[in-house]
Write a protein that binds this DNA or RNA. Structure first.
Lengths: 265, 265
DNA sequence: CGGACGATTGACCTGGTTCAAAAGCGGTGG
DNA sequence: CCACCGCTTTTGAACCAGGTCAATCGTCCG
């Protein structure tokens, strides 16, 4: 899923399946496993996002279907992947890197609705056009699957549709949390919520202190939180003065006092 | 779906199905139709929301399943239906009336994430607890279905899961539009967007002029748009002075100049 | 070393909030 | 039928959180 400041990350997709998705029907075992040596099978089998996103809904025996339907792409940073309003012909699974998803107003104002990382699926569309623009913020690898291939995959493997429902539900919940953040919270509360959410989904430093990695420019964080970069900068300074965080570098922050952040969030 | 200022309403669910949902598998025709005279069948058959929400995914022959699984409830206004955080044991389809869905911060601030009207399904949960509180704003009728019954229904009728995915996708898109509204737009733009969205989904007056019905108090509209009721009142006055709208009564507004609203939204 | 771009800081401004009061507007009961 | 009461809506005036504008500072790269 694309992350939100309040999403509880890792186990969320599984949890969603447990609650609104029917128990997975026993997937018919196919005979493709004997062809496991095929390069096309091997590609998905060795994929780092294998267990995530849509692909996690499939068993090893289904990998040939998956490999045949999808194609990996390596992208530099600042590369658009889908454009808001364009005809939605494919979906993309993020294998590595980070993308930003945003909507644009006619006068150019932009609102980032989420950031996508490994395992997230982007480009699912309601209607014919993409609902948002997706663009890499770091060099990334994504896996392209045409819309028709996705439909065929869902027909052959009902679990894929269930997974898609689970993922969409998690996204919806995250979007509602973001609505709460944007509608109610102060700048300080927004930044604290954001840092806490990131720290939950990222690994602590060697010494065990929680930390967050912010590969995107500050202006993008601002566009996500509904704040100007100047405001973001001022709030981060206040948090640092209060001893809640330390700026290790421009793109890494150490959380010194999670409780203090929790209190202001 | 619960509505958002930018959702294109009526045909949206069907459109979503066309794009991310596989073509409906030919539903096995059952023999229950011969028992159509049963009272339990008749209840759903005569339901005004019959063709909407989850129920629209089922054919007439499946109505006994539906009737057996669900139970209608008449509710007064200001009645809570589901509470944020409580264990999610059931879902509810709105048959008539209007509900507000909101999230609450520890200090009491509330953000309304949407209003639900006939056909909308509320209470779909990610995890074990409801993600929001739902409360009637007018006297309403809702139809209760336990979560286990919903799971059984999805197992027996795959089209129900497809419909659920389509509805969730439409909700997600609406939520992202609301994020754009709350993150970027001015008070004037928010109110204009809101009125336009409502006018698209409501019937014009007898003389053909578009109008909107606002059964909820102004404070709720404000909580939805991220504004105080005072600000809302001032913006409405400005729109009226500009000749874009006319206040017919406290809960009804006539849109005099949709183009003017479009321009400010 | 120089130039470009992102991040930061300061000073000022403003849209929207807050606080307070008045005005509508149903309902209720005499 | 009207007087009263409680609540929502509206209006006014002062305030402030965050935005805007402009200058400075890093830092990364060629």
């Amino acid at each position: 899923m694309t992350f939100s400041v309040a999403a509880t990350a890792t186990a969320a997709t599984a949890a969603a399946m447990a609650t609104i998705v029917p128990p997975p029907a026993p997937t018919a075992t196919r005979t493709h496993e004997s062809r496991a040596a095929e390069p096309v099978t091997g590609r998905c089998a060795g994929c780092s996002a294998r267990s995530k996103g849509l692909c996690g809904a499939l068993t090893t025996g289904d990998l040939p279907d998956l490999s045949a339907a999808s194609r990996p792409l390596d992208l530099l940073s600042a590369t658009p992947v889908v454009m808001e309003g364009e005809e939605a012909t494919a979906v993309f699974t993020v294998m590595s890197g980070m993308l930003k998803l945003y909507k644009t107003l006619p006068d150019g104002r932009q609102q980032i609705t989420g950031f996508a990382t490994a395992g997230d699926v982007i480009g699912l569309a309601v209607g014919t056009g993409y609902a948002y623009t997706a663009e890499t913020v770091t060099a990334s690898t994504v896996c392209r699957m045409s819309r028709t291939a996705l439909h065929r995959l869902m027909e052959r493997h009902p679990a894929v549709q269930g997974r898609l429902l689970a993922m969409t539900s998690v996204e919806l919940s995250a979007a509602q949390d973001q609505i709460l953040l944007l509608g109610c919270k102060t700048a300080m509360e927004r930044v604290s919520s954001f840092l806490l959410a990131l720290s939950r989904r990222s690994r602590p430093l060697a010494d065990g202190t929680p930390s967050v990695f912010l590969p995107m420019p500050k202006v993008d964080i601002g566009a996500y939180l509904g704040l100007r970069p100047e405001t973001l900068s001022r709030v981060l300074r206040k948090l640092e003065e209060a001893g809640a965080i330390t700026r290790l570098s421009n793109d890494r922050i150490r959380i010194e006092n999670p409780a203090a952040l929790e209190a202001t969030a």
